[in-house]
Design a protein around this nucleic acid. Structure first.
Lengths: 347, 347
DNA sequence: TTGCCAAATGTTATCGATATCATTTACAAC
DNA sequence: GTTGTAAATGATATCGATAACATTTGGCAA
């Protein structure tokens, strides 16, 4: 029994030193062999790789990151994973990140910018390769820290001409106005709105502002705005609609929802109350979510390019990380999808 | 201008050394002050903390992790974020992890165990505080590596008496059999099944096996098993059901779905084909998803305790990480939720 | 005043890799 | 056999923190 004086790795996993020892070379040769960089003969490289494989050596990413002053982590902050919007955006980004060798650290902010601020600080202490934030509404502190950090940042989902760094999104105000225009064109005059607490979802608030603008321009106005829900589930849409229809004096001719899920809940509430859509009441959603593909009575909605957004965003961020020059601000178009829950109003 | 010979941090962010210099103390004093450990006077601690705050110093987690041979990262691997099941489980875990100071690195496997295997290797190289895997079906290599790694591991969603380490889940086979028993009790004899490709979702396959067992015991049998879908969306349920009802000779008296979303798609398909549910055909889902709360005709389903599972799992994993002894394997009950899409069959 | 002990503070080694620079080797040209 | 040069290989400093041990300081008893 040879008495090995080498002390073992504290974590129990093989280190570069263990490989070097077995292969009778310096740790630098192992490092070069593993990374596939030049500076080592083909024969030795293969021998080292074989030994590394045989003892199950994988470089410690923590040490690599410390030496490089930068990790292969990408922080992703989304307000929620429910409702599929951010899940889809994230899903569209995944492939590119994985291919490029990045791992994503997720954070859910629940729409709190205080939470986001704390997360940014925690993330920066990981020296991430990049950061992704949802929307463009961040605290001043968050903006400053990110700017100072020199870390590539992508803002996604919303659009601004002056992003922190990169931005791929849609114009929520415009998109709201666009739908408003379509609805006033059909003759709707007295809309109601169902969404979440004001200030919680800044994008949704902007869409409502856009809708409102269009209606006011056409001589109409919101008869009621119902923003008491805490989430955007089917059930919240159902409950808010029931409440709205039971309590409001000025009956709306159309209800605009924060998204399709709430709209579907609203549609169910109408049925339950014996109202016929679109004859008695129009229903309008947002996003073009999955459920709309199977409904006999498809909901009129705006289709947001979520996959496209994720793909473009991820590619741009990766390009930026790798040092390329990329377009800083990209605005994607949103299409109206005319369903069977709205119709021409007789005047 | 004082000529500072101190070289600046390569990443541009202040280091512990910068604080030490400004405060005229050693880096160890700063370290102690920041961590709130004893070994430093109250006066100095406050002074150091003030300086740290003023120059925006936050400890580099990469360096901390290297020194500790362990990070505060917890790797979470889920097959998908769509369909809300894993999103809910994850959401239920979040709070505990955040409170305990852990960050989660997410991975989506798309139900591929090869993918999972590669991910485990990558994650281990981050020296995570813990790992969470979905289900109990992993490659032998994955199991071995995890066992050897000494990292606390939680398997969630499925249950096994012999987990890699910790496990909190439900019995999918039993749960399928339980629903099967309920259905045969109503008099159903000729079920069909709609799910995804065999082998893709091992848990769903086990539920089907359970269902089948119950029907066989009662003298019935599946007349058709439709597993050509690639995902569990509303649309896949719709399309598969349409196909099934149009092509199968032996008409089923009930269709069991992989989950409620597919079931809802199926329900829509029935409506479209002019079939009345539950009179012409029963519909059964799984999970007790959100949509079921707003349907006038609620789908008969099994309610899985997703939040409970996430909470329990997270707490146990954290306890284990902190060195406590915890129950290794926990099996949670699943309740049948009787809706309006199934009814007693006249014999 | 001296000596002792505990608290406060500092010094050095370490975590596991990579960058940088130094040294050795191999081989061609003379 | 020299010599020169490029490729192969190695030694050491470094990334930014913490652990372990060493030293200083302050207060109190003798």
């Amino acid at each position: 029994m040879s008495d090995k004086t080498e002390k073992a790795s504290s974590s129990g996993r093989p280190r570069i030193e263990d490989v070097a020892e077995k292969a009778n070379v310096s740790i630098m040769s192992v490092s070069r062999a593993m990374r596939g960089v030049e500076g080592i003969s083909q024969a030795k490289r293969e021998e080292i790789l074989k030994i590394a494989r045989s003892i199950g050596y994988y470089p410690n990413r923590v040490a690599v990151s410390l030496a490089a002053s930068s990790s292969n982590l990408i922080g992703v902050s989304v307000p929620t994973l429910f409702g599929t919007v951010f899940a889809e955006i994230y899903d569209a980004m995944r492939g590119s990140f994985e291919k490029a060798g990045f791992a994503t650290v997720i954070d859910i902010t629940d729409y709190s910018s205080t939470h986001e601020e704390a997360w940014v600080e925690r993330m920066i202490s990981w020296r991430p390769a990049g950061l992704i934030l949802s929307g463009v509404d961040h605290s001043e502190t968050t903006r400053e820290r990110l700017l100072k950090s020199n870390i590539p940042v992508l803002e996604i989902w919303d659009h601004t001409p002056n992003p922190i760094d990169l931005c791929v999104g849609i114009e929520h105000l415009t998109t709201g106005a666009q739908m408003g225009k379509y609805l006033t064109g059909l003759g709707y005059k007295s809309p109601a709105y169902v969404g979440v607490r004001q200030g919680k979802d800044a994008r949704a608030d902007r869409r409502l502002a856009g809708l409102s603008k269009s209606f006011v321009n056409a001589g109409g106005a919101f008869v009621h705005i119902e923003r008491s829900s805490n989430d955007t589930s089917f059930e919240s849409g159902f409950l808010a609609t029931t409440k709205l229809l039971n309590s409001v004096n000025d009956k709306p001719d159309v209800i605009c929802y924060l998204n399709d899920n709430m709209a579907f809940g609203g549609l169910m509430a109408c049925e339950r109350l014996g109202l016929s859509c679109p004859n008695d009441l129009g229903i309008v959603g947002y996003n073009g979510l999955n459920i709309n593909k199977v409904l006999q009575k498809r909901i009129t909605t705006s289709i947001t390019p979520r996959r496209k957004m994720g793909e473009t965003g991820a590619q741009n961020l990766i390009a930026k990380i790798l040092g390329a020059r990329v377009k800083h601000s990209i605005s994607l178009p949103v299409d109206i999808d005319i369903g069977q829950t709205t119709c021409v109003q007789s005047s």
